[in-house]
Design a binder for these strands. Sequence first.
DNA 1: AAAACGCATTTTGTCGACAATAAAGCCAAG
DNA 2: CTTGGCTTTATTGTCGACAAAATGCGTTTT
Lengths: 220, 220
Amino acid sequence: MLSNNEQAITNADKTFFKLRKDIVEGIIPAGSKLSEMELSTKYEVSRAVIREAINRLATCHLVERKANVGARVVALSPEGLIQLYQVREALEGMAARLAARYMTDEEIADMQALLDSHFDKVKDSHSYYQEAGDVDFHYRIVTGSKNDHLISVLVDGLYHLVRMYRVQLGMAGPRVSTAFDEHRHIVNAIANRDEELAEMLMRRHILYSKNNIEKKLNNA
Amino acid sequence: MLSNNEQAITNADKTFFKLRKDIVEGIIPAGSKLSEMELSTKYEVSRAVIREAINRLATCHLVERKANVGARVVALSPEGLIQLYQVREALEGMAARLAARYMTDEEIADMQALLDSHFDKVKDSHSYYQEAGDVDFHYRIVTGSKNDHLISVLVDGLYHLVRMYRVQLGMAGPRVSTAFDEHRHIVNAIANRDEELAEMLMRRHILYSKNNIEKKLNNA
DNA sequence: AAAACGCATTTTGTCGACAATAAAGCCAAG
DNA sequence: CTTGGCTTTATTGTCGACAAAATGCGTTTT
């Protein structure tokens, strides 16, 4: 149910998406070097489109590029994860506030319906997180903010990094039903047009999520 | 006193910086089309480096690119400005919070010294804003957060857009001394390691700034 | 006269080759 | 044996040319 409506039209687009997918899923290991020549043969495109793809990945902070040296996939670190969640807290908190201000009644009703359908799935299988229900929920809030900068930074940038951490560190864990309740409360605040509460609840929600992942990181 | 330590080493870098400067300062008008061929002759580089420069500008949200069509400089609009300040409020608020947590005592002392020197200048000339003192202050807070994502999004992205609005809409206005006092209070909160207050004061500071600019926009 | 089709032109996307820079290996000197 | 500088090699940066797509215009058709 991922409303991923970004469509590739040019070759560079397709290559960018493939590369991003392979990086996020760890097929291209974190911290590894990206050779333009090598990739151009592997993905069967010219070096120019590989270059463009790598440049785009660099702006997503999925790879780091150094002039005349090359590009490396970012390394996953506890500090990086913490920094990521600090930005998410600020940005998604604001997104929730703006969603409470700007979302239409229809959009809110849709989101409530979405949560209901999630609830049904949660009852039997404990797979709320895996089923991308969490992603879908956050995605709706962010787009509901109607703020292009917010949407771009989160959807095009940070979310892919978040997914990279989740996939490669094997996050799925508990926090399934508790996270669901938190989502409920946030939607209620938005439905009541309570900006202040919506922002605060969202920030807490992300803070809890961070603490949960941090704890796992330290145990592993 | 702009600590702009980004240095161009490759040709694409230099072209990117030149283009960005010309766009921010309105030499290349807002909303105008960017022809690759035309720019490549004008800036005396190949089309490839122009393409790379344009791509980088697109990730800064200074230009918008459409596949197989071309790139245009972003149009300035009241809605865009409001959205920009909404993101600034969230991001710089968090930056102030993190600055209160992570800045060293030396960094804080330096910032206080900076404010003192600003105070001297403000006494005679009413040029706090023009003198880039405001920019410098915000820059210190953001880097003080020690959060790479935060720094990157603001310094490499939003700040250039903010400057574009300021330059092209001729913002300089009053709010000189009041903004200075607000800066004082923020630094004090950081010096006291009061994260909560630092974030709140910074958010208010940006909110006031937004309201001030909005008012000007409506009058003009 | 308005709409639609097709051609021509212009602009962007893609490619392979060349130039410039940095990393690696080698030789020589201390 | 280590260290310094040089040469070699591999990789990135840059370029001009070709391919593909979109816009604009003229013609045709209803």
